[in-house]
Design a protein around this nucleic acid. Sequence first.
RNA 1: GCCGCCUUAGCUCAGGGGUAGAGCGAUUCACUCGUAAUGAAUAGGUCAUCGGUUCGAAUCCGAUAGGCGGCUCCA
Length: 664
Amino acid sequence: MTITVSGEETSVEAGTTGAALFADQKTTVVMRVDGELQDLSREIPAGAAVEPVDVAEQDGLNVLRHSAAHVMAQAVQQLFPGSKLGIGPYVTDGFYFDFDVAEPFTPEDLKTIEKAMQKIINQGQRFEREVVSEEEAKRAMADEPYKLELLGAGDDADETAEGAGVEVGGGEITIYHNVDRNGERVWADLCRGPHLPHTKLIANAFAVMRSAAAYWRGDQNNQQLQRLYGTAWPTKDDLKAYKERLAEAERRDHRRLGVELDLFSFPDELGSGLPVFHPKGGIIKREMEDYVRRRHIEEGFEYVGTPHISKDVLFHTSGHLPYYADSMFPPLHVDEERDAEGNVTKEGQEYRLKAMNCPMHNLIYRSRGRSYRELPLRMFEFGSVYRYEQSGVVHGLTRVRGMTQDDSHSYVTREQAPAEVEHLLGFVLSLLRDFGLHDFYLELSTRDEDSEKFIGTEEQWEQATDVLRRVAEDTGLELVPDPGGAAYYGPKISVQARDALGRTWQMSTIQYDFNQPTRFGLEYQAADGSRQEPVMIHSAKFGSIERFMGVLVEHYAGAFPAWLAPVQVRAIPVAEPFNDYLAEIVKRLKTRGVRAELDDGTERFPKKIRTASKDKVPFVLIAGGDDHDADAVSFRFRDGEQENQVPVEEAIERIVTTIEQREV
RNA sequence: GCCGCCUUAGCUCAGGGGUAGAGCGAUUCACUCGUAAUGAAUAGGUCAUCGGUUCGAAUCCGAUAGGCGGCUCCA
């Protein structure tokens, strides 16, 4: 028969398997048959287009990890008889498997499981695919209640959790058996596959990473299972590189660097998720805010200010309550008066900490009549908002309970809306680039038809979503759909930025809102004298200053570009006699607005260099006899490079220019 | 909010039913002329908080607070 192998027509015997075809390719783990991933053990149908899938390519990695998940599950069921299987898909950089076990896994258990996995791998067990009927599958999985549930769910399984589709779905039902050296089936799982031909391909480049709890099918009303996360790679070196990447992420962790660089802290006395900024962190925050405020004003925004607290009726008007009551701090009851018997003589009032700025900006809009000539009317502020985040989700600066939003609201006519969205998106992207982030993609969050959370008519949603989609597509950036992710009042575009380590963070958001203007009765007088309702467009550029600072700390690994660095210049004399010489230069730098300081401590020279290096100061200025005689200074940069005897004038100009140009 | 783990000096951590240790940091003194650690001395802890068990608790148990890893959530 004739088949096409990697684009070339070839003639092979009927019944040829992938294993036979790619026998000499040791790192081929599965094959793509007419675009579909299949086990190598399967026969290739006549006329098919086939290509080998290498373990190192994404599809191959996924198969490797999914197979490793099976091995882990086999090990767990060996060690913990009676444990029940949940799902076990591959995920980015690894895999997990959920188990219903009597006791949660301990750290020792993880090591034991890893050892048992190694044993299974060393046995070189084969993965064997069996096509079964639904009845057969139910019989085979009689002891696995969760698998039975998935069988019942059928093709819906894809929606139950990330990766659940690997279990069932996609037409026929299959069971994968692990077969030992003697040809005996030793373990089985309901699974769509495909899998590696045998376990030896997992080699010893795998690890059981951690355990955690997870809700069955991602629903918090369901049973909580124990999830084991693992990782697997084609080679030991890949595994090592992955672990090194994790270690690097840990070194860059903004929570760690925040302490080391004395930027911010989270005093227990304040409560969870409430940061305080120390002087050095305060400089970074202020530089960020100053720059962003200036740019907003350049872009036609007007800076406004609103309080941190208000009567809670405001949030009823906006529609945020009762939808989001759970994530707002509980109300404060004030102004109530009682007589001696305890009877209420004056009704009190409920106040709420502000969780969003838009209702207050609406009040500014409404404070007087508005003309179409004023639109677009753009209000902007650094609004302090407080959200009662659940205790388990608070995380460093990236998830806090008190934060500063760089929040703006553009009030426009319906006709102006597309142009304003475009304007905002361009502005947001330019700001992110100014802060050193260059790798983005967009997410379009829309309403979920089935949810009652979303208000407004279908036409309104469609129109708004259309506007956002068109503008997003015009950027040429990757656009990822996020159905059901919209706010209750309208769809949103969010910008996801990738940092230096390739991790993504939701930063900016642009939301199209046709609901709040109605709820607040906002209007403007049109050219024809009629009263019209504006559309409002919400936009947060960094999301929150706190989160963005956390991202920046990690992106730059604490080595901020000069314009953001808390200390821009540290002057270090080679020995004490040069203190005065450098003190004079520091003074001149300070008059130019440079954050410069002299290290006139009693430590010796090399120690001061080391300290400056650990502090990640961008410019170290050194002066000794040679410099003094030449009326010069020497530079030492963060990468260890040095440049000696630069004339003082020139050195100052270079530092000032670098800061002004916001160069790294 | 849920599951598990953790909380000892400013930081990183060791120890462990008989009232505490190291390194770094800090302070002081001496030293100090060329690019990542000079030396010595000193100070610093109700072992998160509260309660229980015990002759005795930092150590064991419980509660609370805070943190970490996930899950759920994220206007």
